[in-house]
Amino acid sequence: MTQPAVQIRHLTKRIGSKTLVEDLTFDVPQGQVFGFLGPNGAGKTTTIRMIMGLISITEGQVLVQGLDVSRQFEEAMRHIGAIVENPEMYKFLTGWQNLVHFARMSQGVPESRIREVVELVGLEQRIHDKVKTYSLGMRQRLGLAQALLHRPSVLILDEPTNGLDPAGIRELRDHLRRLAEQEGIAVIVSSHLLTEMELMCDQVAIIQNGRLVSIKDLREMIGDGDELTLRIETSRLAEAEALLRETCQRQVLRDGQALSITVTRAMIPEINRTLVQNGYDVYSLHTVSQTLEDRFLEVTGRGPIA
């Protein structure tokens, strides 16, 4: 078996009497997109900062391609590209100059590679403009470009979809999947958005209050016999609710202007038929992968931020 791209062992961060991250242990396999999920203040950014050597590790160890980031910092950093929170760049320089700057800090990044990366993130048109004239989305793209310059085998992105438009998010998702599948890069993406994670991750680690709550393999989970949460928009909501409760023998929740019901995949056509036959106008009917969302809310609750 090949070694995991990133191994996190008993990682703990304490500042004063406050424990920000506690005893985190997990592996990120090579060539997978790994989601790092948690509500605001869960400790995602803190963990990423420790992986990148930006803050000291109170206890525990981080190995990147087998290299200890606190003891073999420079060697370990050769393998990682990252964006930590917002990708702030030198605003008085052009996008190109920013990339030249970061390229010089790694070994063996020729100009042709810079051009290649610019093309990859689709910034050819504006790359010679000053960064201060960039939109947030363009800065995100430039941020991704600087993270990829030195062909890292581990890519760490802290909330990379921040500020991207829907097309941009989709594009990023495709990029990341391609990087993982075709180039074998291990990608760690943090987010507090579930749906985003579902669409691009192979595995998701859920953390809350600095502690690992669960690790789920998403590819495995979305199968035929799995329970799904179905969201239904229909006319006469109250009556429909009663009807569904009776026919399905399951709990039905009112979720704004829609109903929410947990069913197996096989039950969905039957529900649709029942509604239509009883004269309801069905406006929409769609599933939300139940395991992750339930898991997330169940473990993290909807309570205030700790």
Partner: peptide, 14 residues
Amino acid sequence: GWGTIKLLLIRPAS
């Protein structure tokens, strides 16, 4: 101040 320190210190340079 610029926030660029985060990008500067995660390179293979101590």
